[in-house]
Design a protein around this nucleic acid. Structure first.
Lengths: 260, 260
DNA sequence: CATATTTAACTAACCAGTTAGTAAACTATC
DNA sequence: GATAGTTTACTAACTGGTTAGTTAAATATG
């Protein structure tokens, strides 16, 4: 720990420490939640003294917020990319659902943190939702709305209220992963194993192809096309790299000012 | 506290205290989770000293388990009833989904506790899932499987893997309520208000009618029939009454008594 | 009285956050 | 290009508040 980094500048070493803290925080918070995570453990995992968390992030809750934002930021790009593909609306919608499905297992921290945030929000405890809602959800939903309504207007997709398509499409994914631990427990088979996942994403696409498209044969072809175009991510994403803190060295983190 | 109940017998008063504790525990645990709930607060809400919780339930976790079981038991009956209706498979499936939807808001403690248990299970913390899985999930899923496969065999429902129908049907419900706090926050409208709920259950049925049935016109009629047959529950269920503990006065703590 | 029930008071553990200090890196001055 | 002074990065040890669980004594009941 002490032997390694003699050559780096102070600022570089500081950035590194900060990044390690954030990484450790993402892991701990996503596994144990805000209340369940232990600051001591985050510090230990980052190879750093506990007080340093407070030096950089002022409080457990602000560290949590920072972790959340880092993860959301990482997801944003990949989510929006799918929406810009130049293909018919129905196909784009299926791509969105498949992209969402794949993210559920390839980016576990995001998935866990989101789930916990929903509960915290429900309890009125969360004040970290602002960025998520603004940066991720709102633009995403707006774009999906456009896609769905375009598909309906074109006579490709069955005419139902657009949000219900989202609830049914993404909800099936959410429910699959939400109930996975219980299925493993009670059915004794693992819905999160690679073969199970591969089979499920295929089934999900085929289902939507039949269910949502007015011409079911056409829907089946679209589903097949989307599956062919989007191979299953092979590797589980390791704890992702995190954005460096801002260049402005004077405004190091939040000024070490006590109290809210 | 002391003045009131002089007329009741010792056993009656004890049963009452126990029931009040369980009620308070259900409320507290469903609102704050196992870790977040405070034993002191449960005791206070039950009008009882904290030590009494330990007298009757031995530990916080066993009290939690008891609360969970009480709630699950209450749900079981109503869930299974829908499956026994003497109507075609497609209609029965839609009834199941609608029943599930209605329970999400009319039995909030159940909904909250289940959600939390899923997360706890995911973290490997839960040892309370046994009863839920055995008593509720397994029989329920088995019955739904039968219904779905009957509908497919009869050529009424589109031929897809049966679990995907469950994921899509129930998942849409789950996702609707899971994302409700965020929708309220970011769209500024309340998906949990009675008008929104009424509209949503109609939309959900119409969607399934169009999406799942090979003959979409027939599906639309089935959806309308199910909606007509199942009026929206008017009142939110108040914290439910709890049954007295068993006659056997020696087995004070763990074994749990059924409820209504 | 003896037993069952209920309580007030206590404790041991835990944990977020603080403090007061050190060492190294950086900057200014000559 | 050495030296003194300043800022930044970091730590060990502590604090104060909280909470699950215990104990021993009190009160009702039969």
């Amino acid at each position: 720990m002490s032997a390694a980094s003699t050559s780096r500048s102070q600022a570089e070493r500081a950035d590194l420490a900060r990044a390690r803290i954030l990484d450790a925080a993402i892991a701990q918070f996503s596994e144990n939640g805000l209340a369940g995570a232990r600051t001591e453990q985050i510090a230990e995992a980052a190879g750093v003294n506990k007080a340093l968390l407070y030096y950089y992030f002022r409080s457990k809750e602000l560290l949590y917020t920072a972790a959340l934002e880092a993860v959301v930021e990482a997801v944003k790009a990949s989510s929006l990319a799918v929406l810009d593909a130049h293909v018919p609306a129905g196909e784009r919608f299926l791509s969105i659902v498949l992209n969402h499905f794949d993210r559920m297992y390839s980016n576990r921290p995001f998935q866990n943190l989101m789930q916990q945030e929903m509960i915290r929000l429900h309890r009125g405890e969360s004040n970290a939702m602002g960025p998520i809602a603004e940066k991720l959800m709102r633009p995403l939903w707006a774009r999906v709305q456009a896609v769905v309504e375009e598909g309906i207007a074109a006579g490709e997709i069955i005419p139902v209220e657009w949000t219900q398509l989202i609830y049914a499409g993404l909800g099936a994914n959410v429910f699959y992963f939400l109930s996975a631990p219980m299925a493993r427990w009670s059915q004794g088979y693992d819905p999160l194993s690679p073969p199970a996942l591969e089979s499920r994403r295929k089934i999900a696409m085929e289902f939507l192809g039949q269910a949502l498209f007015i011409d079911r044969a056409h829907g089946a072809r679209v589903a097949a096309r989307v599956l062919a175009a989007t191979p299953m991510p092979l590797t589980i994403k390791p704890p992702q790299a995190v954005a460096p803190r801002p260049a402005n060295r004077k405004l190091v983190s939040v000024p070490l000012n006590p109290l809210k």
